[in-house]
Write a protein that binds this DNA or RNA. Structure first.
Lengths: 193, 193, 193, 193
DNA sequence: TGCTAATCGAGACGGTACGTCGTGTCTTTTT
DNA sequence: AAAAAGACACGACGTACCGTCTCGATTAGCA
């Protein structure tokens, strides 16, 4: 927690500590109680904040969840092992491990996007980021001649991401990341290597 | 509606008419009022059923929504145009058109699955069905030598489904089905054809 | 239980065993679960009877409760110790002890009487019986010159019963029966004795 | 109604207007629809209050009914005619007249008290209040030497109340209040007056 | 002996109420 | 002016109970 005992007004301007405390509280609740515990009341209480403050920072629950997810996911740097299939496998492994804990949150955002256009737009943008993150890695693989000729790198990137999300949604985060990587990347790899 | 005026017990066993009437009512409400009108109270009232009956058939609202979705989507017979890429494109076209109206319902089910294990299981089973639906089509394509040697048909089937869901979630149902099909299937197709 | 394993039709006429079993079951449930467990569903299940049978014997829940109470209360013979105040005290003691277990049932009947005229009538008749039961005892006390001159025996009888019911309703069954008897009877007793 | 159009939060503390509005609504419903119309949903709707608010003020329906009864019965000031028997008679007359309309409500509370400890406690307290109300009146009668020597005033007060409740329960509100008063008070009165 | 009539257990059904929960808005009091 | 506090309206959810109904099996009495 960024502030322990109490947090008061800091005068006639918003107090960023409040927003932090709210996100911290939400994260803690998610860890301890799961999705069902992630209510606006509980978050505010946990943060020793008021719902007024919560709604001053985010227009609705979905926006808060998204902010929470973005803050928690951290950077999406992909490794460079020299082998695309290994890069993908390691990413799947890392992402699945993360999602074991908070994949629910991501699913919930998907749901929230149905009622809230703001969340929906943010989700669309988020997808694009994830896909774009892959492009440099894929270009290097292409330079190493790992890929079939004329491979559509964006399509491949999207496929990688789509499969990750698909496995999250269908609750198969326990799958072997290496096998999944092979299945997804396989057809894009040059045969005679 | 399967029965108009009244519907009574048919003895010491569930009356399928009741379940039908409830699904009919839910479908009608979805059409007329949208997702927000799909409350258990409203559905029961519309069906002239009691909530007891509704909850006898489905353990919670999510399960009912899934049943509704499954029933509405109809059979998933894939066409056989003699060209896999066209088969996939046509399916995407059909599915996206359906989802334009009730994709929300499906997204909602995904969300509901996060805090309801029953719905989650049903969703997992649903995925398997969708994937299995594709296998015969893919086998025929293989016999026609459309696919690269040693193609993992199940992986391909899963990829087809994963992309569809991914596009739904990221709100890109307006995308060109043919282009998407080409991107998904492309790398699995034999080159020298 | 009057019948152990199963109880079938005995032809084209009601089977009294069924009614017995239902009352037995109700009594057992009341003992074990209290008033809240005394639902028509639970009684039927406990009796291995069907609700159809239950409602064949009694038109509604109130009637069943009343039958149960009447059967359980047994005879209301009052003792004759030679002292009215002792007679009353012993009766209060016995009745309060009984009500410790099933006074709730009696209160429930009072409630049921509000919606059901049949139960109401039965309750009125029941009061009259209780009052009349006291008259012989009071007459003997009068002959022993225990009472003030010109005592209205019916009024006294009613007062005795009214106080018992009042203590039941206001949950004071733990009161000392002798003290209560003295308070109720006191003013009716001749002083110089 | 204490507030007509809208009623909002008045800060971080309960708004008594809400409770008032709820009781008003309940009273109105009782008048118009009778006991069966007195559902928590209907009361909340009529009061333009939320069920949350209703249950914030009273733990359950029974408690609300009791509050309603207490408020409606008004003050229990007993008249002082200079004659105890007349005071009692007039009170019986007034109470019986009131109960003609809402005795059901009181009976229902008695019933509710059987499976709700909160209501039970309230009912017990209510009895004590009613009994205590009588004590000043009885003391004045004693000072006027109306009562026999050494009369237990509390016992007498309780007897007065017990008989009233008894007559309510056994549906004899049509009885002559003067006769009843004479029967109840008679033995407590000094003879040679 | 085969037929008829009514009961029985079983449990689903319509209807209706209850009490809980979650969201987003509001107002007061304190800083 | 912003913060904590928490009450508020709205409205959904899932549970419980009552009294009615239909089924298939059962049994006694009549033909």
């Amino acid at each position: 927690m960024s502030s322990e005992v109490s947090r008061r007004s800091i005068g006639a301007r918003p107090n960023p500590d409040a927003a932090d405390a709210i996100l911290d509280a939400a994260a803690s609740l998610l860890q301890r109680k799961g999705l069902r515990g992630l209510t606006t009341d509980a978050i505010a209480r946990e943060a020793r904040a008021s719902k007024t403050t919560l709604y001053r920072w985010w227009p609705n629950r979905g926006a808060l969840l998204l902010a929470l997810y973005v803050r928690r996911k951290g950077s999406s740097v992909h490794e460079d092992t020299g082998s695309l299939i290994q890069d993908v496998a390691r990413t799947y492994e890392r992402v699945f491990r993360t999602w074991q804990n908070e994949g629910q949150l991501f699913s919930l955002i998907i749901a929230e996007a149905q009622h809230d256009d703001g969340v929906a737009e943010a989700l669309v943008a988020f997808r694009k980021e994830r896909v774009d993150d892959w492009l440099p890695v894929l270009r290097r693989a292409e330079e190493r001649s790992e890929l079939v000729d004329g491979a559509d790198l964006e399509a491949l990137a999207e496929s990688i991401v789509a499969h990750a999300w698909f496995y999250l949604i269908t609750r198969r985060l326990g799958s072997d990341p290496a096998i999944l990587a092979a299945r997804v990347i396989g057809p894009w790899l040059r045969k005679n290597r």
